[in-house]
Amino acid sequence: MKIAIVHEWLESYAGSERVVEQLLEIYPDADVYAVCDFLPDEERGFLRGKVPTTSFIQRLPRAQRWFRYYLGLMPLAVEQFDLSSYDLVISSSHAVAKGVLTGPATLHVSYVHSPMRYAWDLQHQYLRQARLDRGVKGALTRWLLAKMRAWDHASSARPDVILANSRWIAERIRKTWRRESTVVHPPVDIDGFPYRPAKDETYVIASRMVPYKRVDIVVEAFRAMPDRQLVVVGDGPEMTRVKAAAGDSGNITFRGRVPQEELVALLQSARAFVFAAEEDFGIGMVEAQACGTPLIAYGRGGASDIVREGETGVLFPEQTAASLTEAIRRFEALPIAPEACRANAERFSREAFRRRVRAEIDAALAARAP
């Protein structure tokens, strides 16, 4: 078979790029397409030496810094890729990649990280955070998002098969596109987070300091529980506000950004990993489980796919300090075994991802056979 993998844009080796990496493990001879490619040389290893075919956006003025400002042109860009010679096209999509054009002889399987969040249910949050909720720029942005929303819905009919990265995303796909999908959780490098059964009494949160991560409610909860220790890892624009929420609490320690080996050591020794965001999936939670560390997580989003309530952690129902505090007390009364947490993480390994994706694609190909 001749196979193409279509990705949104290549800027850094992050979560969605790890999906592309595993797709190339399954199909090493596949060609790679992307709206634009600005990966630094030191992060290109996962492409196996391949040079992606890019769109006209690659050549637009100041595209390396400003390519996101060309969002309105991206639907046109992906529709210009000529994929007519391929038997199988796999798109890795959180914005426009699933909108590529394929013919009836080509099977198109789209692995969807999410429908276009900022054009659908998170539009108002996005506009507030970008300070585009009023004025002329705000009105123009709303007009653009309305156009993107219409295209996103129309192009959702183009994939033959949709794979969703969590049940939460499958429900978002059903709500926004009126399409059914199969859940295939994203790949996690659990071998990079070795199991350690011995734990200390410290709770850990590791997160970018941005509003939706809600690190503020975590430090607020621990500020009210001075007999419990919390280590906060990460940095970002919300750091000042988060530190203000912590006040002068002596039980909360801010580490900022830490090297990978230090992060792994913190996760291995933590009594529990605390997670307060509503995420599409939440790879950091799986990494903590791989270390044998229980989770205390907000119960919406991907956390409900990861946490086995009462066995590998607990979920709290509201994004408030009070709800989190109650969950911590409930967690401390449970006999959660570190080995159960590690076993749970195995469900999300890279090997499990490759196995599931290959099975879904093979079944779809078989169904098309004469």
Rank of each mutant, 00 (worst) to 15 (best):
S16A: 15
I3R: 13
D160R: 09
E360F: 01
T53C: 09
W143S: 12
R300L: 12
P194Y: 09
R196N: 05
F353Y: 14
G256M: 13
D160P: 06
T240W: 09
T293D: 00
V286I: 08
Y126K: 11
P259T: 08
I173Y: 10
A288W: 03
L163I: 02
R179K: 14
V96K: 02
E311T: 01
M239E: 15
R347T: 10
R255P: 09
A221F: 00
Y111N: 04
V232L: 08
E171K: 08
G247D: 13
L107M: 07
S304Y: 04
H124D: 15
Y86W: 01
A340C: 00
G99S: 14
G103I: 03
Y298D: 03
V78M: 08
H108L: 07
G284T: 10
T320M: 02
P294Y: 02
S181C: 05
E8I: 10
H7G: 05
S249G: 14
R44N: 09
V109A: 01
A265Q: 15
R48F: 06
M239W: 03
A352F: 03
T106D: 04
E279L: 06
R172Y: 08
L101I: 14
M285Y: 04
R257H: 14
L315Q: 00
D82N: 15
T102L: 10
K213F: 09
P370D: 02
Y118V: 08
T240Q: 14
S92I: 00
P28D: 07
V274P: 08
A164F: 11
R257K: 14
V51A: 13
